[in-house]
Design a protein around this nucleic acid. Structure first.
Length: 480
RNA sequence: GGCGCCAUCGUCCAGCGGUUAGGACGCCGGCCUCUCAAGCCGGUAACACGGGUUCGAUUCCCGUUGGCGCUACCA
């Protein structure tokens, strides 16, 4: 399916990708994929002080990790570039010139201090602080004089005094009152554009059809609509998605826990799990199914089903979603991502197939990959740490005999020990000794893993391997 | 302050004039099971408030309250 639909995600590179931004990107991406349109990434780096190249790389990496690949953007030319606002300065300038030429914009020489003073005064009088139009009708002579004082002007839009209606795909029609805005700045004194101007020029030139973005931009939309009109560009469809808030309804803050995609990645969430959870925050599929791969997300996604109210980020639910992905995504994929979590804890297994087997057994009980090392450490050589309860099981009267009997029986067959063989042998030994159930399994589990909880014992033994199994059983048989 | 958005279980959602208000996370109990998970079964818990409109409002309108956003030469 192919269409003319074009959407964009336009992050400003001032840090890592935030979960809020990630969800906005996701909704754009899902919409594009669903509709057969194009997903464009544009870097909004007109804020010189806060934007860094490092951040840009980080954001792009985060998007890539999530699998939100772009059809046009940094590194992928689609004929509408450049895709970095800092490289489009001349374009904004030209557009501002156009507006200036037909008197829809004007130069303003007011200084920060003057403006600040007026703002304070207005506030003090209980008025709405707004540009007073002082430079609206400056004569060329007056301009020249101001410039000779060394002042460099900003360009302000001559804002028409009219209410602005914005229709939003998610929210319906919204009417903004004309009193709301004054002649806002579109070009700074150093020639760089302001957000509301650059966005419109870019979206228009990049032929964006649907602007899907966070709700915080809703008030800005009024200004942008004006710019579209004055420039003579066609309006895109707007869709404003609600914000993601903290569990206590306040703004998502780093202090209360992880907020960036990178942090979740480092905690061992799968891209598919994070994506799935984020999609569920503010959107729900018609059938109510919650756990699904991204391909299904694409099939089911509809902007019309995006909710209006702010959604609280719930780590419990994220964990639940992620745990499902952990055990439902292809084992090989999970294992590859798992390697670094094991290795940072010194758990290095050269045989990838064996490592996969460990991951396969352990993933049943995991919410995140960061919990993996603790779950598989007993598979590795070295001193087996004994939990107190495990020690107790092994100190039982018949434990030693049972272990000895098992060692003997397993020793009789000299092939590999698979799950079936181990279980059968265990049962036979139990039958002879008159032990079954918990009394049979727990001492053996304790001897093999040092713990009282874990994956199915037969499978554990198989992954452990004949040598380690015999060694650990023997040790348990010999000590009390 | 002004303007705007939002308002269903603790949380995420469903509902789109008539429902015993549904599902999911969490929590509690049970089943299964060598254990832990998973799975299955059951329980817990909500329409913010006040006016309208209507035969009938969770649902439509208005107001109040509350939360959030914007009000920059930040995005």
């Amino acid at each position: 399916m192919s269409s003319n639909i074009r959407v964009r995600f336009a992050p400003s590179p001032t840090g890592h990708l935030h979960v809020g931004g990630a969800r906005t990107a996701l909704f754009n991406w899902l919409f594009a994929r669903r509709e057969g349109g194009k997903f464009i990434v544009r870097i909004e780096d007109t804020d010189r002080v806060r934007s860094t190249e490092k951040s840009e790389r980080a954001v792009l990496e985060d998007l890539t990790w999530l699998g939100l690949t772009w059809d046009e953007g940094p590194g992928v030319d689609g004929g509408h570039g450049p895709y970095r606002q800092s490289e489009r300065l001349n374009i904004y300038r030209e557009h501002a010139e156009r507006l200036l030429a037909c008197d829809k914009a004007f130069h303003c020489y007011c200084t920060d201090e003057e403006l600040e003073e007026k703002r304070k005064k207005a506030l003090a009088e209980g008025l709405v602080p707004q540009y007073d139009g002082k430079c609206r009708d400056l004569t060329p002579a007056a301009r020249k004089e101001l410039e000779s004082e060394g002042r460099s002007p900003v360009v302000r839009l001559r804002a028409p005094l009219q209410d602005v209606a914005v229709s939003d795909l998610i929210r319906g029609d919204i009417l903004f009152k004309k009193e709301m805005l004054g002649d806002f700045i579109i070009l700074r004194s150093d020639g760089r554009p302001t957000y509301n101007f650059a966005v419109v020029v870019d979206d228009a030139l990049m032929e964006i059809t649907h602007v899907i973005r966070a709700e915080e931009h809703l008030p800005n939309t009024m200004r942008q609509v004006l710019v579209y009109e004055l420039l003579g560009y066609r309006l895109p469809v707007f869709a404003h998605v609600s914000l993601i808030v903290d569990k206590d309804r306040s703004k998502l803050s780093k202090r209360r826990g992880a907020t960036s995609v990178a942090e979740f990645r480092d905690q061992g969430y799968l891209p598919g799990g994070l994506i799935n959870y984020l999609a569920l925050l503010g959107w729900s599929p018609p059938d109510g199914e919650e756990i699904m791969p991204v391909s299904e997300l694409i099939n089911k996604f509809e902007l019309e089903r995006v909710s209006l109210s702010p959604a609280a980020f719930d780590e419990d639910k994220l964990n639940w979603v992620n745990s499902h992905h952990l055990r439902e995504e292809p084992l090989a994929d999970v294992a590859v991502l798992a390697v670094r979590f094991a290795e940072t804890h010194g758990l290095i297994e050269p045989d990838f197939a064996r490592f996969e087997a460990m991951v396969d057994l352990a993933r049943e009980g995991l919410a995140r990959l960061s919990d993996l090392p603790a779950a598989i450490s007993f598979f590795f050589d070295g001193d087996l740490e004994m939990e107190e309860e495990a020690r107790e099981w092994l100190s039982r009267d018949d434990a030693k005999q049972l272990m000895a009997s098992l060692v003997r029986r397993l020793g009789e067959s000299d092939g590999t020990i698979d799950a079936g063989l181990f279980k059968a042998t265990l049962k036979a030994a139990g039958k002879d000794a008159g032990i079954k159930g918990k009394d049979l399994f727990m001492p053996v589990r304790s001897a093999l893993t040092g713990r009282t909880h874990g994956p199915a014992l037969g499978e554990v033994a198989a992954v452990l391997g004949r040598e380690r199994v015999l060694e650990r059983l023997a040790r348990a048989a010999g000590q009390d």
